[in-house]
Amino acid sequence: MNSKNDMNTPSRHKVSALRLYGHYLSIHLRSVMQYKASFLMTAFGQFLVSFNMFLGIYFMFDRFGSVEGFSYSEVLLCFSVMLTEYSLGECIARGFDTFDGMVRRGEFDRVLTRPRHEILQVLGHKIELSRFGKLAQAIVMFAYGVTHSGVTWNAGRMLTVFLMLLGGTALFCGIFLIYAVLCFYTLEGLEFMNILTDGAREYGKYPISIYGKRMMQFCTFIIPYALVQYYPLLYLIGRSDNFLYGLLPLLALLFLIPCYLLWKVGVRHYRSTGS
């Protein structure tokens, strides 16, 4: 027996999750560099992807002037923040968003044979760098939205925008995670989850109040979109002086807890059925 190579001592130093994630990232970076031109084209396409949404808003306001008391610049701020949250969530949690393929190809088995947390591995497995093109577009829109919103910026409002981004990104990550959990149970018919992800991005461009009371209730208590969109927006544009509204996005972070518990249940189910 070769003792030189026998280093399975439990006390050995564990590579940190962050460093490992960085390593995954660098692998993805090196992968796309194999197809530079193709990567740049796709990233550019992704950069333009949300442009249609912006044009839609622009022409609707060109015709109607305002919607339910919200001006063009206010909606623009709302839209750009939501888009940035979604894009960030997608950059981080793309592994969950494409998890059906991972289950279908049996790659999750491989994840389970490795001594790291499954979530870390799934996130690292799929980092689609071309999506950063979309994020770049969202950031451009964000800069445009913030500067044209007519908001007088103070420390509290800047904090609110930051919290909106944080809470919203977490919210989208949580929903992608739920999508991944469902993949453990079925690979068919998960399309309806698009309503909660793409639908939220698409229709979250307008303040949720325009969709009526019932939608507000759903987005406050069930999937807390309103906590990262409508209420803090009221504080940002000076419609409300209640600073608590600006802090509500923090509450949306709690949404991740049930998502994580569901994930645990899903993994246990997968390990008992193997499919």
Partner: peptide, 16 residues
């Protein structure tokens, strides 16, 4: 949802 968006604009300015 799509219809709801247009309804909101309609409520705001039906003439347009």
């Amino acid at each position: 949802m799509e219809i709801k968006v247009f309804l909101a604009f309609h409520r705001t300015n039906p003439a347009a």
